[in-house]
C-alpha cells in the first residue's frame, strides 16, 4: 500500500515535469507551428502521467480517470491539427534558419 502511494506520487511528479517542459516549449519555440508541436505532445503525456499517478493514489477513481485519459488522447491531437490547418490555409510563414541570417530573403 505504501509503495503504491509513493510510486503514484513519483508518477505525478514526472507528469508535472512534462507539463512544465511543454509550457516552456510554448514560450521558447520560434514560430506557431513549432509551438503547437511542443504544446501538444508534452502536455498529452504529462496529463496521462498525472492521471495515472492519481489512479495509484485512489484506486476507486480509476474508471473516471480512464475516461479523462481517453477524451484527452482523442481530442488533443484533433484540436492542434485543426489549428495547424487554419494556419496553413491562411499562409502563416514557416520559420527557417535563413530568416535569422537575413530578414529580406524569401
Amino acid at each position: 500500500m505504501h509503495i503504491l502511494h509513493i510510486s503514484g506520487a513519483i508518477t505525478l511528479l514526472a507528469g508535472s515535469i512534462f507539463l512544465v517542459l511543454g509550457a516552456l516549449g510554448v514560450v521558447r519555440m520560434p514560430d506557431p507551428f513549432n509551438r503547437i508541436q511542443a504544446g501538444t505532445k508534452a502536455t498529452t503525456l504529462g496529463t496521462i502521467l498525472v492521471m495515472s499517478g492519481l489512479g495509484m493514489l485512489h484506486p476507486s477513481w480509476l474508471p473516471k480517470l480512464f475516461i479523462l485519459i481517453f477524451f484527452i488522447v482523442i481530442t488533443n491531437p484533433i484540436s492542434s491539427h485543426v489549428l495547424a490547418r487554419v494556419m496553413h490555409n491562411l499562409q502563416v510563414p514557416l520559420w527557417s534558419k535563413k530568416d535569422q541570417l537575413s530578414e529580406e530573403e524569401e
Binding site: G15, L19, A23, G39, T43, V50, L65, N76, S80
Partner: peptide
C-alpha cells in the same frame, strides 16, 4: 499573433485539467 494566443489557451486548459484533478 492570434494563433499564439489560441495555442497558449489550448495548453492552459490542459494544464488546468491536471490541476483540477490534483
Amino acid at each position: 499573433s492570434i494563433y499564439d494566443r489560441v495555442i497558449a489557451l489550448d495548453v492552459l486548459t490542459i494544464i488546468s485539467i491536471s490541476l483540477i484533478a490534483l
